[in-house]
Amino acid sequence: MNVQHRAYMHTLAQLFVVFLKLGPSTFGGGYAMITAIERETVDKKHWLQPGEVGDMVSVAGSAPGGVAVNSAAFVGYRLAGVPGAVTAVIGIILPTFVIVFALSIFGAIFKDVPKVEAALKGVHAAVVALIIVAAYKVGKTSIFDASTLVIAGLSVLVLLFTTLNTIYLILGGPVLGMAVIAAKRALGMAALTEKEAQDNRLEINVPEYYI
């Protein structure tokens, strides 16, 4: 077994363990998870750059399926190719798979106990907070000029007040992006497509006390 192979197996094992740990905390599924995934993969393991979280969520959100599972697949693929994606997905699915069984056995017993309901209400509030944190983190790298702010605001309004299918919004995003950038270039304006890298480096060092 050569060194490269061993390093690869080590990466796969790490992917499995990290996402196995993340699995049980995916309450509310999807976006609440982004906060936890970001913490593990960016802050602790340094697998992704802070700016890449936005890309991860964009790719994960534009494919069908749950955002959390798709994010796991993205990180796994980015680090170790197709086997990495499969390993990460198995890691994140396994705990829920087991918990679902445990619940199907105990759920019927505890469903009507008032204190369990109270605990679930508390969890519900926490999930809302985690989703807000995810929106804040992703928004920090994706909203940095007037056009991106307008696009984000409009998409919230469309989601709140129309029944338009999400898929059209997701398909519309790239079209809008290319149109805005092309228009800006045609008008001779500066057209940054990403927040400047320097900002990201600053954000690592400065704690977020201003929140």
């Binding site: 992703v138 909203i143 989601l159 919004l169 995003g173 079209v175 990403e194």
Partner: peptide, 10 residues
Amino acid sequence: FYGLRPIITG
């Protein structure tokens, strides 16, 4: 992605 990211944020 410049256009997609704010939509995902939304």
